[in-house]
Simulated assay, not measured.
Amino acid sequence: MHGDPTTGPPLRGEAVNAGGRHTDDRSRERDAFRRDPWDDGDDLDAAFGPDTASVRTRTGAERLRAGTLVLLGVAVVAAVLVLVLGVILSQVQHGVGGVFPQPDADGRRFATAAAALPGVATVDAPRTEKTSFAGYDVTAVVHAEPDLPAADRRALVTAVSTASADSSGSGVRIWVTLDLGTVQVGVSDSPETSQRRLALADRLDAIGGVDAVTCGFADDSGARSDDAGAQRAVVTTHGEGAGFAAVAAAAEALGADVFPGVQVQTRRP
C-alpha cells in the first residue's frame, strides 16, 4: 500500500485507517474526551508542578486555634442568651400582666417587710388562696404593739399598705388584717381606702358600750375588694335591749357618714 503523498510513506509497524489517518490521532482524541473535568492533573500541574495553590493550607495547630475561638464565641453567645432570658422571665413573673404568679414567695416577702416596720410586734404566717386560673389572694395578720398613739396607728396603716403593694407580684394580691388591740382594720394595697377603714373603726370604737370593732372586707375569700359595697364593719357590744339598739343605730349612722356603702353589723360577744 502506498503512503500519503504529502506525508510520505508510513513507517514500519504504523497502522493506517481507511481514510489514511493514523490511529494515534484518534487515540489522543478519545483520551481528551474521556478526561475527567475535575482531574487535578491538569496542564498547570504539568507546566508548573503540583504546589501552585494560591491559598496556603493551614496547619493542624492553626485549625485547632480557630476551632477553639469558634467554640468560645458560641459559649459567650449562649451565656448572654441565658442571662437575657432570665431577666425577661423575672420581669414577666413580677410585672403587670405576667403569667407566672408566685404567691408563696410574695407572702414571705411581705411578712419580712412588715416585721421590720416600726410599731409591729409580730406577723403571722401568710395564707395563700387560689381565686382564679392565674390569680391568688395572700392573707396575713399583723399584730401591732399595744397602745400606739393615733398618729402612729395611721402611719402604720400606710406603711403596711405600701408593703402589701410592693410585695404583690403578678396575679397576686395581699390582704392584711392589722390587729390594733380592740380594733382590727383591713389593709389592702390602697393606702387611701385602708385609712378610711381605720377612721371608721376608730369612730365606731368611740361609741359608748362598744367592746371591739373589726372593719375589714365583706367577703373573707375570693371576692375581696376596695369597693365601698365590699366593706364590712362588725361592732361588738355587751349592751342589751335599748342599749344594744342604741349602739346599733349609732354604728349604722357612722358607717353611712364615714364610708358610704359599708355593711355595718352589731353583735354581742
Results as ranks from 00 to 15, higher is better:
60 G>F: 00
66 A>V: 12
145 E>F: 02
101 P>E: 00
133 F>Y: 08
108 R>H: 13
117 L>I: 10
202 D>W: 08
169 G>H: 05
256 A>F: 09
74 V>R: 15
3 G>I: 04
255 G>H: 02
258 V>C: 07
130 K>R: 13
157 V>L: 04
237 T>V: 12
90 S>G: 13
91 Q>A: 10
180 L>V: 06
116 A>L: 09
156 L>C: 08
42 D>T: 02
234 V>Y: 04
261 G>I: 09
156 L>P: 14
150 A>G: 03
256 A>T: 05
214 T>D: 08
79 A>Q: 06
47 A>Q: 11
65 R>P: 13
178 L>A: 03
47 A>K: 07
14 E>P: 01
35 R>T: 04
13 G>I: 01
255 G>M: 11
193 T>I: 07
224 R>M: 15
22 H>V: 04
67 G>W: 07
161 S>G: 11
67 G>R: 12
10 P>D: 10
179 D>S: 06
117 L>C: 10
267 R>M: 10
185 V>E: 04
97 G>S: 06
262 V>R: 09
72 L>H: 05
183 V>A: 11
201 A>T: 02
231 Q>A: 11
29 E>P: 06
88 I>H: 00
99 V>R: 01
211 D>T: 07
86 G>N: 12
168 S>W: 04
243 G>S: 05
256 A>M: 08
101 P>Y: 00
14 E>Q: 12
190 S>I: 06
28 R>E: 01
72 L>W: 03
268 R>K: 11
98 G>W: 00
17 N>E: 03
6 T>M: 15
188 S>V: 00
5 P>L: 02
203 R>M: 03
205 D>L: 13
127 R>T: 10
133 F>T: 10
72 L>N: 07
200 L>V: 12
269 P>H: 07
138 V>D: 09
7 T>V: 12
43 D>I: 03
101 P>V: 00
153 R>P: 14
202 D>G: 02
213 V>R: 00
165 A>I: 02
156 L>F: 01
108 R>D: 15
188 S>H: 06
94 H>D: 14
32 A>S: 11
141 V>G: 03
9 P>N: 11
265 Q>V: 11
15 A>R: 14
30 R>P: 02
31 D>Q: 13
242 A>N: 03
180 L>I: 05
92 V>W: 00
33 F>E: 09
90 S>L: 14
124 D>L: 14
148 L>A: 09
75 A>Q: 15
151 A>Q: 12
143 H>V: 13
102 Q>F: 00
27 S>L: 15
229 G>I: 01
174 I>Q: 05
252 E>N: 08
113 A>Y: 02
35 R>S: 11
202 D>A: 11
6 T>C: 15
118 P>T: 06
4 D>H: 13
238 H>K: 07
19 G>E: 15
248 A>H: 04
118 P>H: 02
25 D>Q: 09
85 L>K: 06
73 G>N: 07
